[in-house]
Amino acid sequence: MVAESNIELPSDLEQSGIVTRYELLKHLRSRRLLGIFILEFVIIALILVIPPLQGEDYPSDPAKFAGMFLQGIWMLIIIGSTLFAGDSLVSEFQQRTGYLLFPNPVKKNVLFIGKFAASMIVMLLALAVFYAVVAIIVLAVDGSISGLMAPSFGLALLFAISALAVGYLISSFMKGSTGALIMTFALLLLILPIVDTVATLSRAKPVFSLTFSSGVIGYIMETPYPTDFVQTFDFSGRTFEFLNYYPEVSLSILVAIAYAVVAIALAVWIFGRREMAA
């Protein structure tokens, strides 16, 4: 019999790579990734169908045409974060797979890194497919593509990482998978946008908000880049002001990084301390 102690344990980095590989297998074999791809094609098909139905031509400016598709990318990121991050950690506790995985000689933060990397890769894959299909359509219709698609893709990736980090943070402390999925989705789709609206109505620019800042992914396609302005409406003899705020690129990048760093740090800390008590 070969004694196990003769085997050298892999480094933390090697172990995180192994975790990533098997987490990727999970995503690739799940219906969630397939669902994301189907959703992408539905979004693209709808955006393609609407102008002809309204008797309008597609924009001849490649940046403007691509921008039509990219305005909805945040929704895709929210759904992706929910599906690829929302229950990633909590399922180990709720589904009891932690009893299989945790007694192995592997640190919890290594497991976290492996899982997060896998989520990032599938998110990258989903976004890359979306941008590639959009680029092909724009190229086919307008004969060229906009160079602004590259920074938009980079920003989409950055905000996807931030959204995933928020999903992992929620997953690190929630007790159930379903609750974690719902909370991630609700936070990114409802709660933060409501905060944005309340802040805007209160004449405070919600620069701190991830959802507000994520607007930069689509706005970057506009030339010139939009700036804040005030719209006025006259109604029943009274004048109403409506504030239009736009996220600044550099500040938005900092906000996304801050969300990612803080959420990951907290998630690693909570996941590391969480015990299989049940």
């Binding site: 004694a3 196990e4 102690s5 085997i7 344990l9 589904q95 009891r96 797979t97 009893y99 299989l100 007694p103 192995n104 000689p105 299989m276």
Partner: peptide, 12 residues
């Protein structure tokens, strides 16, 4: 844990 094998509760 390097030289330990474990079955705890009923793992999934």
């Amino acid at each position: 844990l390097a030289s330990v094998g474990a079955v705890v509760e009923t793992p999934e």
